[in-house]
Design a protein around this nucleic acid. Sequence first.
DNA 1: GTCCAGGTTTTTA
DNA 2: TAAAAACATGGA
Length: 278
Amino acid sequence: MKRKKLFKDKMMNKIKIQGYEKFSLEETFECGQCFRWDKVGSTYHGIALDSDVLVYYEGNSLVIEGAKENSEKLWLKYFDLERNYSEIREKLSKIDSTLKKAVEACPGIRILRQEPWETLCSFIISQNNNIPRIKGIISRLCENFGEKISQQSFLFPSYKVISNLTENDLAVIKSGFRAKYIIDAAQKVSNGEIDLKRLETMPIFEAREKLKKIRGVGPKVAECTLLYGFHRLEAFPIDVWMKRVMEDYFKGKSPDVFGEYAGIAQQYLFHYTRTNNR
DNA sequence: GTCCAGGTTTTTA
DNA sequence: TAAAAACATGGA
């Protein structure tokens, strides 16, 4: 029985990607944009694109083990590997010397294209919370209400499913006061009040206002959702860390100084100050 | 026991 | 209108 499973694992579909430039799994997964990727030895285990996968380097290839057949294109998009980041890094480096340092400290970061609903829900959970606990809550949310896709893995539950739950049902995930926010978000998406499809292309200022109609979604969560869930690279989330960065290095300036890639600039700066202050 | 965590809502002055 | 306090939970 166990042997059979092992055999099956061995035969699992593997995708190999080459030709990416300065991409780092560690910098990308540990920069605070995602909560469902975990380091396992020298690999990362995660659930994305409806698959339970292991990703790692093999020579100069990036391997995605467990990916669906013919999903290479989707994974390229997921990791944003088709975008010319070296050009963006150069552009950003010219804007400011602190930003230049931040860029050089973690050039392997990519902004993932995560599922919009999962991202919205995850960042609602993130408020006034720490990363280990955010991960725990999300993992319990998936185990209790998501579809099981393998021995240990569950998909992120749909908004449809969550929209029919009560705060009491959600007690098992121990999200505290955030439970009612999660349900409100699910209901507003379910009943069409919030149209995720339209948010993708809507002018960003309108999209912000739409998202903030959800209880528990303020400027920070809205901005994170736009950047990580909708790949709106001009979105610029400001949390306690970024507030400090802005105070220290960009006093009196607006995020506009970072231009169309403000979100990517934010990610370099966020990772830079966090790793330097520990 | 107290403080804090990738904030937001509610209450208070 | 702006500034505090409250909000659940768990680890340090």
